[in-house]
Computed example of a mutant assay.
Amino acid sequence: MATRGAYAKGVVKREEILEAALEIVGRLGYRSASVREIAEAVGLSPAGLLHYFGTKEQLLVEILRARDAHDTARFADLDFMPAFLEVLRHNAEVPGLVELYTRLAAETGDAEHPAHAFFLDRTRAVNAAAREVFVAAQKTGRIRADLDPDWIVRAGHALADGLQNAWILDPTVDMAADVAQFFALLRPVTPS
């Protein structure tokens, strides 16, 4: 029984850490947010905090996983394309999380990187969900049937990731507006 109680407390503490980390990294950024600052926010030492995650790198991966879970829950009532645009709009409010995502994504070409499996799994899941939406939209005539749905997914993914990089350099870039324009280009052309 004590183990279950200790496990439940550990799960709650881990969630508390991730909530604090989302706020701190989102506000301060990947480079400015420290393990010490996150640990202090939840009443732990840095070593105590890392006990829940193993390494700083694994903590960073779990922050991204928590970010995705929050975004999924926050926009769950929307269809895929409107939800995707809302996530991009929300990303502009949490620059540190965008910075964390882009930095870790760039490092995951190394199969040994702690974030490699996360990005691989995330990409597969997002791409599969997007492909399903695009194929269904093609069947109903909302998206051009002459476009390969796999190309749409790859191009959309590349556009979104590239826009995040561009936005980090120039925060006037409107990521959601550019992706909305891409979605508009997918619609069938109606004769005038």
Rank of each mutant, 00 (worst) to 15 (best):
A2V: 09
T3M: 06
T3D: 08
R4D: 10
A6L: 10
Y7Q: 11
Y7W: 02
A8C: 02
A8V: 05
A8Y: 09
V11T: 09
V11I: 06
V11R: 09
V12S: 11
V12K: 12
E15A: 14
E16F: 00
I17K: 06
L18G: 03
L22A: 05
E23F: 08
V25I: 07
V25G: 12
G26I: 13
L28Q: 09
Y30P: 09
R31T: 02
R31Q: 03
S32V: 01
A33M: 01
S34M: 05
R36T: 13
E40I: 00
A41D: 02
V42A: 10
G43W: 05
G43Y: 05
L44P: 15
A47F: 05
A47C: 01
L50M: 03
H51F: 15
H51D: 15
Y52E: 02
F53Q: 12
F53L: 13
F53K: 08
T55R: 14
T55K: 07
K56Y: 01
E57R: 14
L60G: 04
L60K: 10
E62W: 11
I63E: 08
L64G: 09
A66M: 03
A66S: 14
A69F: 06
H70C: 05
R74G: 04
A76L: 06
D77E: 11
D77G: 07
D77R: 11
D79Y: 13
F80M: 14
F80A: 13
M81N: 04
P82E: 05
A83T: 02
F84N: 10
F84V: 00
L85H: 02
L85G: 01
L85R: 08
V87A: 06
V87P: 01
H90T: 06
G96S: 04
L97E: 12
L100K: 14
L100H: 13
